[in-house]
Design a protein around this nucleic acid. Sequence first.
DNA 1: AAGAAAGCCAACCGCTGTTGC
DNA 2: TGCAACAGCGGTTGGCTTTCT
Length: 272
Amino acid sequence: MGRSPCCEKAHTNKGAWTKEEDQRLIAHIKDHGDGCWRSLPKAAGLQRCGKSCRLRWINYLRPDLKRGHFTEEEDNVIIRLHEAIGNKWSLIAGKLPGRTDNEIKNYWNTHVKRKLIAQGIDPLTHLPLNAANPGPPGAAHRRRAFPAPLAGGGSASCSRSRDAAGSSEDDDSGSLGNLDLDLNLSISPPCVHYPASSSSSPSPPPPARIAAAMDYDPSLGYYASSGVCVCLDRLGFQGNGEPCSFCNGGASSSSSSSMRPVASSSGVFRFA
DNA sequence: AAGAAAGCCAACCGCTGTTGC
DNA sequence: TGCAACAGCGGTTGGCTTTCT
């Protein structure tokens, strides 16, 4: 079972990259871009597997990488995002420009974990160590906040989620500080986008009836369909009677603006 | 000064999700 | 609809460096 190996192992180098290999990879990507990793090694004259090239480029050679120590602010972002979404390193990396998932993962395992433990916080559950429930690994994390990891297309969100275990004195559990993650799930129709002006684009603007039901984002110059919210409140899990930031329109909730999911022009919800 | 232990991080591995045929 | 190819992700490993004894 399983698939064939991604490359012919007999003819590929492994281990540390040499300067020459780096140069070849950089030069090739400069000239041709970084698509099609499978064929890239051959085209670039590298005796490497495509995956290896991709990893090397993403984790080390990319020009926009920020190297060096993590700042206190970055630390906090990592901790809060990890609290919210768990080991979704690529998502966390997406919130830290210039940092890679691998870098953050390593940093978490070598520094942050230890730091949290020293502060008496369980790095898995983000609860005080003596209060952490000894359940099966991972269960505590799920119990902590959210029915499921809402990675990928799902907008991880819920500024008002309550710990199902009922730690109501944990005021930070919902807002996650200034990140203010809203871990309700919002599902939208397949993100239909209409440019606001038909003159600047071949695509026509939406019919008035549709436009009325959509949000116009002036910064993007697009109409985008609103999400259909199935937040915990609506599903009856919260019980505090307050709408989440998304179905509340984000207008009145003072704590909900910073991480409200926003439809981007690429049709993917992002945190704003 | 030397060996052991711990820390660190680049790279690998195996798996899953997505896409195209 | 099923399959294969591919990209990407997260966990793990291995080797180098630093610190400790």
